[in-house]
């Protein structure tokens, strides 16, 4: 039953709610107890080691990591697929491992090539 299967996960939701139950009252209590000093424009500036902040807080940021991100998208999914194989390993015939080894070989070759290229191009 799909509903029954989903109801296995409700205790996780209870724990999530428990986290909120612990966090929100702590913040409210802190809001009640904490002193509120008069408004001071310098106090609310973003932290920049005591200097006046220069420029925007949310600026553009060069993130030269796209090759690894693309590889992550591929290989993260691959590792989850391996779990589907790993749980059923003991109930499938032994010959079914050979295609799996082939799949791993292809993935390994692709990964090695990608890492080789990203090393050659000097991305990080």
């Amino acid at each position: 039953m799909p509903g029954e299967y989903a109801s296995q996960f409700t205790p996780i939701m209870y724990m999530l709610g428990m986290g909120f139950l612990a966090g929100v009252p702590a913040l409210i209590l802190s809001k009640i107890l904490a002193p509120r000093k008069s408004y001071n424009p310098v106090k609310f500036l973003p932290m920049e080691c005591g200097q006046m902040p220069v420029g925007e807080g949310r600026s553009h940021f060069m993130m030269q990591y796209y090759a690894y991100i693309l590889m992550f998208v591929v290989f993260d999914v691959m590792s989850i697929f391996l779990y589907a194989w790993g749980t059923s390993l003991l109930s499938i015939p032994k010959s079914a491992t050979l295609p799996m080894i082939g799949f791993l070989g292809i993935m390994f070759a692709a990964m090695g090539y990608a890492l080789y290229l990203s090393g050659k191009k000097g991305i990080w």
Binding site: S30, A34, P35, F44, P46
Partner: peptide
């Protein structure tokens, strides 16, 4: 818990 929370 008794410190002021500063929102930038």
């Amino acid at each position: 818990i008794s410190k002021e929370i500063i929102v930038p």
